[in-house]
């Protein structure tokens, strides 16, 4: 028995030292279905704004990073289960998510909008945003467990909210006519619908929505106990903002500053 105990402790020791050396490598998860922020390129690699930002942050932190793909639904459970150490997947900082995980400071903040067919008769307010009444009876597609789902459920009470596992699938159903409108980030909708095949029939309605259920912008998600990692990410975001790296990445994808105010 004693021998066994010694053997076990040696094994545990070996395992834990192995884990320590592996921990220097930071695994960062992204979704790969939310262009232009994150998507799978033709060669199978993960690319996009989130991925470029994550790589730039790692460079500043002098950390060895690996980008891994993770379905949206499993993002927070996967982080908590230590399958990876951080999330760079356009995840907005919300009070709901903060109960489970922690975030770096924001690295971008863009408005959410409604996209629908050009010829859809939707009543709009002074900002051109569709009103609650204007969307009455319509099917609005959102990605499950996003700020957009929360916002749509809270505000468009007379519409049917249809939830999808990914933005790509929701976009496909809008173009195919299964749903009447999509609510999502403006840049994701421009890339996913307006620039895609059949996108000519659609348009963005209004300047968009901010605040409230839509959160405080997008940050890097980390486990609550990893406060050091969180602060390193925040510091690195400041650094790439200051030294122009952020602008370079931003300009590769967008023609305005995605960082927001």
């Amino acid at each position: 028995m004693k021998k066994f105990t010694i053997l076990m402790s040696v094994a545990v020791l070996a395992l834990s030292s192995g884990a320590a050396s592996a921990a220097e490598k930071i695994k960062i998860a992204t979704e790969g279905a939310y262009a232009p922020f994150n998507f799978v390129a033709d060669d199978g690699s993960l690319q996009g704004f989130d991925v470029d930002i994550a790589k730039a942050l790692c460079e500043k932190m002098k950390a060895d990073c690996e980008i891994v793909k993770q379905e949206w639904d499993g993002m927070i459970p996967g982080l908590l289960a230590k399958k990876f150490d951080a999330i760079a997947a356009s995840m907005s900082i919300t009070a709901e998510r903060k109960q489970k995980i922690d975030f770096s400071e924001k690295y971008y903040n863009t408005p959410a909008v409604i996209v629908a067919r050009k010829d859809a008769k939707i009543a709009v307010d002074a900002n051109g945003n569709p009103t609650d009444e204007g969307l009455k009876g319509m099917k609005i597609g959102v990605q499950r467990s996003t700020i957009h789902e929360n916002y749509a459920r809270a505000h468009f009470k007379d519409s049917e909210i249809v939830v999808y596992d990914s933005a790509d699938n929701a976009n496909l159903d809008l173009v195919n006519g299964r749903i009447d409108a999509r609510m999502d980030d403006i840049l994701a909708l421009q890339e996913g619908i307006l620039k895609a095949e059949g996108g000519d029939d659609f348009k963005v309605y209004g300047k968009g929505f901010v605040g409230g259920e839509l959160g405080e912008g997008v940050g890097i998600g980390v486990r609550k106990e990893d406060t050091k990692l969180r602060d390193e990410f925040s510091k690195a975001i400041q650094e790439i903002r200051a030294d122009g790296t952020y602008k370079k990445i931003n300009d590769k994808y967008f023609n305005f500053d995605a960082y927001g105010d």
Partner: peptide, 22 residues
């Protein structure tokens, strides 16, 4: 549930997405 239907698995996935309790 993969084509937006909220049957048993679909409902569970919606609740999981809200509570992060798979």
């Amino acid at each position: 549930s993969l084509v937006t239907l909220l049957e048993l698995t679909g409902v569970a996935r919606v609740i999981i997405a809200r509570t992060f309790a798979p």
